[in-house]
Simulated assay, not measured.
Amino acid sequence: MSTTTPRRRLLAIGGVLAAATLALSACTNSSDDGDGDGNAANAGAGDNAETGDTVRIGFSAPAADHGWMGAITDAAVKQAEAFDDVELVNAEGTNDVNLQISQVETFINDKVDAIVLLPFDGAAMTDVATRAMEAGIPVINVDREFDSPFAARTTVLGDNYGMGVSAGRYICQQADGSTDAVVAEIAGIDSLPLTQDRSRGFKDALADCGLKVSNRVAAEFTVETGERAAANLLQAAPKIDFLWNHDDDQGVGVMAAIDNAGRDEFVMVGGAGSANVMRSIEADDTVLKATVIYPSTQGADGIKLARLIAQGRSMSDLAEVEVPRIVQLAAPIVTKENVDQYMDSAFES
């Protein structure tokens, strides 16, 4: 059994997050040029920005049925448009696994140079992604991981565990040494590994300052389920000091339930980084005081990496001669003090 203390574990996590931030900056921040739209493309600088052989990249993602997913596709398309050596084959977003499998099979038959794939279901898409790899087409897996390491050349991930850590650390700071604060949590879909990772990170971070989750409910990443779950939580918990909601899209419903209940005695932290939440943080006129970023740039990062891999290039800010196999993005906390830094990259819920 490990003898590492919780504080040391979290310090180690901090080092991992810092390294992930470095990897991300090498991929997406190699230029200061841009049009001010965080979801628009940034073509990079140095060797990576030089025009190379034209490559065809197939892109497939789930349907844009909420703000974060819509932002993923928009950012990917804008990123491809920023390069004059990329031809994007953009499949229609779908939540039908069989249709998404068919889309990838079409990419294989058309012999695209690379595939960027955010699976609706990572396990279900593993076989067809593996077939693409076996056909010599590099697959860049975005956000939802495949079941096999052989199904992707490179994987771009958010940091779900890190989201929980960031939310928990912020609450620990706000609690300022109090160990009897009442902490509540509104999770997403409990059966999903991403939700489990977020909750585990949250629990670990709270434990580091002697706090724990007293009341917890799960929603389903929608406005309706967010409102219903929050109403149930507020009824069951007459006193709350801090509340973390995993997802800003479902947070629209959570805020509606809070307003309907007339509750304002607690500090709320959001999750993902929507524009409406950031505007609320900036205005400082609701219980929402912070949110944790889960980047909606992952599809755009996938396009940038697919281009480099298909052209046989590396990331110019790294000494490594190959594009890394895993790029994990950071999960920073956004508050009134730093909201301007993240507003341009926010998505609309």
Results as ranks from 00 to 15, higher is better:
A129S: 09
G188M: 01
V77I: 13
V55D: 05
D113R: 10
Q174N: 10
N245Q: 07
A49V: 04
D344V: 00
A23D: 15
E105I: 12
Q173P: 08
G271E: 03
A91T: 02
V217F: 09
M163I: 09
L17D: 03
G122Y: 08
A80T: 05
E87L: 14
M69H: 07
I186W: 01
N276M: 10
D247C: 12
S274N: 07
P238L: 09
K111G: 01
A114G: 10
G15R: 15
K289L: 03
T94D: 04
A330Q: 08
G226K: 10
P324F: 02
E265F: 00
Y294C: 15
I171L: 12
A272V: 14
G67K: 07
D127L: 14
G226H: 13
G36L: 05
I13D: 04
V112Q: 06
E282K: 14
I140N: 01
V267R: 09
I258T: 14
M1R: 14
A91F: 03
T155D: 04
Q235P: 02
D204T: 10
T21M: 01
M278N: 03
G44Y: 04
A20P: 00
L192Y: 09
N160L: 11
R169F: 00
T73M: 09
F120V: 13
L22P: 00
M315S: 06
R263E: 05
G58L: 12
M268I: 01
N42Y: 03
L318T: 10
N42M: 01
G34V: 03
S102I: 00
A290C: 01
A207E: 06
L117A: 05
G58E: 08
F83D: 12
D121A: 07
I72R: 03
F83A: 14
V327Q: 00
D113G: 09
S25M: 10
S31T: 15
D113L: 14
D264A: 14
S314K: 13
M343H: 10
L22N: 07
T195D: 15
V104Q: 02
A26N: 09
T28I: 13
